[in-house]
């Protein structure tokens, strides 16, 4: 059983006009096996929260703590956070020219497992992961995210989730830009990963449709850099019906 704990997290970004505070004190605790959904208007800071946990250099933590089973995540380098068990499926996955998916995945798995996976087993593992996400095997030879469609990038993210088996997965709008079939395939991947490793999931989304596949235990409303309301799955339906007006003006 692991716990990811975020306390009083304040984050700012450097702009031409100086530092701008984006996160204004976020508190959130996620335990293994739990699924938390975060919903909130554009620009409210959801991706900022995700990136800050993962350690993107653009964001400056001005106060607060993030711990994983008591270990100080904010002290860790980006790769150390991944090794500690954090995974971020990005809203906009990055293209890495000239680096094949197959080479990338194997390098990542080697880093996370501490040794190179046995070739034969690894090939099977990758093939199975690609098959279950309905990705053509030719993707293994393509360069990371290069020329991938929006939906293909998201499948690739979830394929990594299945292969890399983190303790906590943060999914930043993994459902955006997916057609109905892809949404089901990707959601099933997340559920499979969760069932297999009992990881905790932090799911950032604008739509309840993904929550029909990945049932949240908790729903958090995010507005203006902080969590403004928390509830169970029923809160998501209320948000979809009423929007965020009451939180934004409040």
């Amino acid at each position: 059983m692991s716990t990811l704990e975020i306390r009083g997290l304040k984050v700012s970004v450097e702009t031409e006009q100086g530092a701008v505070e984006i996160l204004k004190g976020v508190d959130l605790t996620i335990k293994s096996g739990e699924t938390h959904a975060i919903m909130g208007p554009n620009g409210s800071g959801k991706s900022t929260l995700a990136y800050s946990i993962a350690g993107h250099p653009k964001y400056t933590i001005t106060s607060g703590t993030v711990t994983l089973d008591g270990a100080d995540v904010l002290e860790m380098t980006v790769d150390e956070r991944a090794k500690a068990g954090l995974f971020l499926a990005m809203q906009y996955p990055v293209e890495v020219p000239g680096v094949s998916v197959s080479n990338f995945l194997r390098t990542a798995a080697t880093a996370l497992r501490g040794e190179a996976p046995k070739l034969r087993e690894w090939v099977g593992e990758v093939r199975a992961a690609m098959e279950s996400l309905k990705m053509d095997p030719s993707f293994a030879q393509r360069n990371v995210n290069e020329g991938f469609s929006g939906g293909e990038k998201k499948r690739h993210e979830i394929m990594q989730l299945e292969l890399l088996k983190p303790k906590f997965a943060i999914l930043d709008e993994t459902d955006s830009g997916l057609d109905v079939d892809a949404l089901r395939i990707v959601s099933e991947g997340v559920v499979r990963a969760k069932d297999a490793s009992q990881c905790g999931v932090l799911l950032i989304t604008h739509y309840t449709r993904i929550l029909r596949y990945i049932k949240p235990d908790f729903v958090h409303v995010f507005a203006n850099g902080r969590i403004v309301e928390e509830g169970g799955p029923e809160l998501a339906d209320k948000l979809e019906a009423n929007g965020y007006a009451e939180y934004v003006t409040a």
Binding site: A54, G55, H56, P57, T77, V78, D79, R81, A82, K83, F87, L88, M90, P93, V94, E95, V96, P97, G98, V99, N103, F104, T107, A108, A111, L112, N143, V144, Q160, L164
Partner: peptide, 26 residues
């Protein structure tokens, strides 16, 4: 690019190596 690779557990030196190899690979 470096952030993406490192967020998958790849350390800075290996990430730089991958990016440079990728750059020349074409």
């Amino acid at each position: 690019q470096l952030f993406y690779l490192m967020s998958r557990g790849i350390n800075m030196d290996d990430a730089r190596r991958l990016v440079v190899r990728g750059f020349f690979n074409e």
